[in-house]
């Protein structure tokens, strides 16, 4: 499968910065994948994501979209940004217009769509994030979760192929962040490529099919979440802790209580397997005693 986004040996230093925010980062993002960029604060996750739609231009190295290196003239950038949608961490930064409807319409209007198509795009995007009936509300009267959905709808209305989320669940309560993650699940299952950055290993473990572990501006590891998060030394180096579920199942497997592979994705799956191994054990013993 050809990678949709290819990043080759990219480095960046912020203007006036002393150290490189990211140095020598290379990776590939395949079409239709769900990738989580995991790392502690200051690992360079946001800097890296801002390069994917050309907001930051790397000092050295190349970013390729569909095989072609990014061009930084305004026409190519506009085209790129339509195809790679970026949802900012703080929705207050992203929401520009005085009403929800006008804000979601911002992208489509600037793409030059005819009014009917703009209306349809806005309606579909608001339906998708579950904000029907919010059209005339001003953003300052919305809750944090609602603002996040407006920000996501504003990007969805441009119908991008790749969605990039910078810390999608930051400062949201557990229920709301669960809903946002469900929305991301839904988007990814409809064939869009979804990338997010987070320092929540539990979230990354459950959601992603590919994890990129970052620390101090470098890629420390990449692979399936159960592989990356099973290496305690790697996680310590990245100032993170393994997901509780994975740590528990690894320990159970280590003590021979359950089979090692494949690691469970949910509590129910783990409990099922413990139950199965207990009942196997019991029937073995039962057969033994009868004999």
């Amino acid at each position: 499968m050809t990678p949709l986004l290819t990043i080759e040996n990219v480095a960046y230093t912020y203007p006036g910065g002393q150290t490189q925010a990211i140095s020598g980062v290379s990776m590939e993002i395949t079409a239709g994948s769900r990738t989580a960029l995991v790392g502690p604060n200051g690992a360079g996750k946001s800097t890296f994501l801002l390069m994917l739609n050309g907001i930051l231009r790397p000092d050295s190295g190349v970013v390729r979209f569909s095989g072609r290196p990014l061009a930084y003239d305004s026409k190519s950038l506009r085209d790129l940004r339509r195809r790679v949608g970026f949802v900012f961490q703080n929705p207050d930064v992203q929401i520009i217009a005085p009403t929800v409807e006008a804000d979601v319409a911002f992208g489509p209007v600037n793409l030059g769509l005819p009014p009917d198509d703009v209306r349809r795009a806005v309606r579909d995007a608001l339906d998708h994030v579950g904000l029907q009936g919010y059209e005339d509300r001003p953003p300052h009267l919305l809750s944090g979760g609602e603002k996040k959905r407006v920000a996501i709808a504003g990007i969805l209305a441009m119908d991008p192929e790749v969605l990039v989320f910078d810390e999608p669940t930051a400062s949201l309560d557990p229920a709301t962040s669960g809903e946002v993650m469900d929305l991301l699940d839904d988007l990814a299952s409809r064939g869009r490529t979804v990338l997010l950055s987070t320092h929540d290993v539990e979230l990354a473990y459950r959601w992603a099919d590919s994890v990129i572990l970052m620390g101090r501006g470098r890629v420390l590891a990449r692979g399936a979440p159960e592989e990356v998060f099973s290496d305690p030394d790697l996680l310590t180096a990245a100032r993170l802790r393994p997901p509780a579920l994975l740590a528990l199942s690894n320990e159970l497997a280590h003590r021979g209580i359950i089979d090692r592979c494949p690691p469970p994705k949910g509590i129910a799956e783990l409990v099922d397997r413990i139950e199965r191994s207990i009942s196997d054990h019991a029937s073995d013993r039962g057969g033994h005693e009868r004999r």
Binding site: I55, R82, I96, A97, A105, N110, L111
Partner: peptide, 10 residues
């Protein structure tokens, strides 16, 4: 910029 601003607001 990230939302393709080209001079029009809705």
């Amino acid at each position: 910029d990230a939302r393709c601003y080209s001079g029009t607001f809705s």
